Lab assay of single mutants.
Amino acid sequence: MEVRTIKVFTTVDNINLHTQVVDMSMTYGQQFGPTYLDGADVTKIKPHNSHEGKTFYVLPNDDTLRVEAFEYYHTTDPSFLGRYMSALNHTKKWKYPQVNGLTSIKWADNNCYLATALLTLQQIELKFNPPALQDAYYRARAGEAANFCALILAYCNKTVGELGDVRETMSYLFQHANLDSCKRVLNVVCKTCGQQQTTLKGVEAVMYMGTLSYEQFKKGVQIPCTCGKQATKYLVQQESPFVMMSAPPAQYELKHGTFTCASEYTGNYQCGHYKHITSKETLYCIDGALLTKSSEYKGPITDVFYKENSYTTTIK
């Protein structure tokens, strides 16, 4: 009895394709271990004539594949690729409408935090270190965002349907971005203890939790000093293409032309909904596939993004 075979390709990165001759009487799992086709788990399936010449994702289970996976995804987590594939199996079914010149995501599976993050990423200057993220990001900007969303979920250790947080998501993504040249110098002034300067680099240099107003941050924000008295913390120097200011959701007025974009969060910790506000020729609110415009805006804002380049204080 002759062994019926077909020729397929296996890959971990969709760049390096490895030619395989597979036995049609055995499952993919018996031949390769966990195997995925377009995100779908085909591990328990036997090869079919229609699979001839198709590319299958496999887990990096030998040295060659491990090197290829690390170079593309910059992670050695053995569960990463499987999590990416199972997320992709959902995100490829989502709709990605162009809204006001940006790629958004039609609401499904509690994905409003991903839509808000995706919209924000198209408006701030950011370059990702893992080629996987950078490639998928370019495709997302062009309207094909399924891979990018699935990668975000995998890097953030999230599953489809789980509630997510924009600030946490951005923080994970910033860790995989090139923020080497970003720098922030802060000064804390206390009447009792004097003053202390701190220099922050990388992710810490672009994120701040405690106030939404970048102007206020430049002037000074009140913080408790270690001595128990009130101290003032203010920005001395900022070198970065953008800054992200966050605070627990509270009524906040966004003035046209003073910011790049913002995240609105309605609801409580267990259950809520994100919308995205962007400042173009007027203010726009993007909620999944829905767009509304207004000249002014007041609502429960939790993150505001500002364009920056270089700032030095005039406070002496």
Rank of each mutant, 00 (worst) to 15 (best):
G194A: 02
E308F: 08
V12D: 06
K275T: 15
G257R: 05
G143C: 03
V304M: 05
E168I: 06
P47A: 12
V185N: 01
P130K: 03
C190V: 04
T91L: 05
P249S: 00
I301D: 03
C261F: 01
K275R: 15
A69N: 02
N268I: 07
P249F: 00
Y113P: 04
A115T: 12
F32R: 08
G39T: 14
I6H: 07
N16Q: 08
Y137R: 03
H18G: 06
T11P: 05
K275E: 01
Y138S: 14
E204C: 08
P224D: 12
Y269E: 15
K92E: 03
G29L: 07
C261D: 01
T314C: 09
L254W: 06
Q197I: 09
N61D: 10
G194P: 07
S104V: 05
N49F: 13
L65H: 08
Y155T: 00
P300C: 15
G267F: 07
F80H: 04
Q31Y: 13
C112D: 06
A177F: 02
Q197C: 09
A289D: 13
Q123F: 03
T260Y: 07
P241W: 04
M170T: 03
V67S: 14
T55F: 06
P60Y: 06
A140F: 09
T198A: 10
G267S: 13
K201V: 12
M245V: 00
K127A: 11
P300E: 11
H176C: 07
G272Q: 02
M244W: 03
M26C: 14
P300S: 13
D180M: 08
M24R: 12
T314P: 09
V304L: 05
M209F: 15
V166T: 03
G161L: 00
S50W: 12
L200E: 08
M26D: 12
L163M: 11
E168Y: 07
V185I: 12
V58D: 06
F9W: 11
G220K: 02
Y297W: 13
A177N: 04
T192L: 09
P131L: 05
N157I: 03
T76D: 13
I223L: 09
A142E: 13
D165E: 15
K218I: 04
R66T: 11
S171P: 00
K54F: 13
V221H: 10
P131Y: 01
S246Y: 07
Y84Q: 02
Q122M: 05
D13V: 06
T266F: 08
T75S: 14
Q222M: 12
E71K: 10
E71T: 09
M244G: 00
L88T: 03
L81I: 15
V203T: 10
A69T: 08
T199F: 06
N110R: 03
N49C: 12
M26Q: 15
A145W: 06
T116N: 08
D165K: 00
V185G: 01
T266W: 06
K46N: 14
Q251F: 13
V206W: 02
P248C: 09
C271Q: 11
D109S: 06
L290T: 15
N178M: 06
Y311H: 11
T226N: 13
F174D: 04
P34W: 08
C285Q: 10
G299V: 02
I45C: 12
G228W: 00
L81N: 03
K46E: 12
Y28F: 14
N309M: 09
M207N: 02
K298N: 13
A145P: 10
Y73H: 03
D180F: 07
C193V: 03
D62E: 09
N61H: 12
Y265Q: 02
V206A: 00
V160D: 01
P78Y: 09
A132D: 02
H51V: 05
G33M: 04
Y28M: 06
L121A: 10
G82M: 15
T302A: 12
Q230L: 14
K293H: 14
P249H: 01
Q237N: 09
K44N: 14
T198H: 14
A177M: 03
K293Y: 07
V203L: 09
L65Q: 08
N61I: 14
E204P: 12
F242P: 03
D77T: 03
V221S: 03
K218T: 05
G228Q: 00
E215N: 08
K280W: 08
